[in-house]
Each structure stands twice: as C-alpha cells, then as structure tokens.
Simulated assay, not measured.
Amino acid sequence: MSDAVLAPRNAFHGVIAVWAVSLIGAIALGIALPEQDRVTWLVIAFGGVILLSFAVQLGYGRAQGFIVRVAASCVGSLIVMGLVSAAFGLAALAAAL
C-alpha cells in the first residue's frame, strides 16, 4: 500500500511575508529616525531582510525553486524599501520648501 502524496505548501506565501516585513520595517524606520540616519539604518534593515528571506525559505524545506524564491524575496524587498525611502525623501523635500 502506498501513502497518499500530500500537496506541498505554497512557498510564495513566504515571499509575501518577507515583503510585508520589509514594508513595515521601512515605514517604522522612516518615522522613528531623523533624516540623516535613515539611509544607514535602511541598509542594515535590508541586510536583516535578506537573512530573513533565507530563513523563511529554508523553513519550507523544499529545494526546488529555492534560488528563485530567495531572489524574489530580496528583489521585492529592495523595491519596497526603495519606494518607501523615496516617499520619505519626497516628503522631506516638500517640507523644506
């Protein structure tokens, strides 16, 4: 008798979770930090997001598509954090005028 093959979990949920963490982290850093310290801490936070993306994808335990999922997590987080950073930069520029 053979066991029923279970459908693997959708690993794309981990990618979206990492994007959400990067969005929340970038907004929190943008609000909490002064303008001159934001870029430094956003780079540090991005490093943490990269480590988080590896941890989340390793937690799924699937080797197939690992590089694609980690790359999607990292590139998506970079875009999200860049857009949030640009929004805070435009807000600071508008406040200066």
Rank of each mutant, 00 (worst) to 15 (best):
A55Q: 08
I67V: 13
A63D: 08
A96M: 12
Q36E: 15
P8C: 07
A72E: 01
L78R: 01
L58V: 04
W41I: 05
I31A: 08
L29F: 02
V75T: 08
H13G: 15
S85D: 02
A28E: 05
V75G: 03
G48D: 08
R9S: 11
V75I: 12
I79T: 06
R69T: 03
E35Q: 13
I79H: 05
V80H: 01
V18Q: 00
A20P: 00
A32H: 06
A45T: 02
A96T: 08
R38F: 02
L90C: 06
S85H: 02
Q57V: 05
V15A: 03
A20V: 15
A92V: 05
S22C: 09
R69W: 04
G76T: 03
A45V: 03
I44H: 10
T40R: 13
Q64G: 06
L6T: 05
M81E: 03
L78Q: 02
L23I: 07
A86W: 11
A7H: 06
L90F: 14
S77E: 01
L51C: 10
P34H: 11
P34Y: 13
S77D: 02
L6F: 06
W41T: 04
G61P: 03
V43N: 14
A7V: 10
P34G: 09
A92F: 09
V21H: 02
V5P: 06
V56G: 00
S53V: 05
L33P: 08
I31L: 13
A28L: 07
I44M: 13
A86C: 04
F66N: 11
G14K: 03
M81H: 03
V84T: 01
A17Y: 04
V15R: 00
C74A: 12
V75Q: 03
A45Y: 03
F66D: 12
A95V: 09
F66V: 14
L6N: 06
M81W: 01
R38C: 02
L83G: 05
Y60H: 14
L78T: 04
G30M: 02
A11P: 06
